[in-house]
Amino acid sequence: MDWSFFVGHVNYWLFVVLMMTGLYVVVAKGNLVKKIVGLNMFQTAVFMLYISMGKVHGGTAPIFPTDMKIDPATVYTNPLPHVLILTAIVVGIATTALGLALVVRIREEYGTIEEDEILEIEQDMASEENRIHGQAMGGRA
């Protein structure tokens, strides 16, 4: 693994770093909004992977001249991954919006957006249910 290999794949290294950072945020942060942010970083890493993949060395923007006289020597960058990622970006925005909307609703219902506090509330609810229904089932639940 020499220097040129490292430089030649710099977009992948950045992709890996960004992806892992995103995942780490999702795993490590207890704040629900921060988790969404982590998720966003994670997705952005993928956008980067795709977009950098479409780049062809020495290629120009894939726009045809208006007279449609195309020089066969011209190298174009592959536009397809870019187009794909446009869709993925839309998906990402939708996910973020929905996620944040859920966070708002959770804040309304639980009064907090810290995961450990929410879990504690839910654990209490579950224990209470088990107590009630466990007894009702003759302790066999």
């Binding site: 998720l39 859920l102 966070v103």
Partner: peptide, 18 residues
């Protein structure tokens, strides 16, 4: 708890899809 369930599913599902 449907809200947190949906939120968890959203995080997990997005990671899976990604």
């Amino acid at each position: 708890r449907a809200l947190t369930a949906a939120y968890d599913y959203l995080v997990m599902g997005t990671i899976g899809a990604t």
